[in-house]
């Protein structure tokens, strides 16, 4: 009984991961400019691996495979921010203006008093 409960949780995690990956993919197509698409891409890069790897880890239990899976997850979580930041910075330097523009007015003023 306990075994099948683990199976069910793992199935839900896998399906959830797949669902979030597709949502991120839709966002990738739907959003208007580079920076917003970067945010959509970061859904597929953080939550989807998190859910899918947890689901797979529950399947395999404690083994060498689990170690490697966790290593992949750790590596993805460490590198994707760097890659996103590098892309955003490069686009910024290339002079691509974000949609919505720079809100230095009210937002900037409120941030300076905090």
């Amino acid at each position: 009984m306990a075994e099948s409960l683990v199976d069910i949780i793992s199935m839900l995690l896998l399906l959830g991961g797949g669902l979030f990956a597709v949502i991120g993919g839709i966002g990738l197509l739907r959003f208007p400019d580079v920076y917003t698409r970067l945010h959509a891409g970061s859904i597929t890069d953080t939550l989807a691996p998190l859910l899918i790897v947890s689901g797979l880890v529950l399947q395999s239990g404690f083994s060498l495979l689990t170690f490697k899976l966790l290593l992949i997850l750790l590596f993805l979580l460490f590198t994707t921010p760097t890659a996103s930041h590098a892309t955003a910075r490069a686009a910024m330097i290339a002079g691509i203006k974000p949609v919505g523009g720079e809100k230095t007015g009210d937002k900037g003023a409120s941030s300076s008093n905090t």
């Binding site: 990738l28 989807a48 899918i52 992949i72 993805l76 996103s84 290339a94």
Partner: peptide, 20 residues
């Protein structure tokens, strides 16, 4: 840069695909 964003997402999904 849109291309890079797409390729980056494609690459991370490949990793997950191989794991699955």
């Amino acid at each position: 840069y849109d291309t890079i964003v797409g390729v980056n997402a494609f690459g991370t999904k490949t990793v997950l695909l191989i794991a699955l």
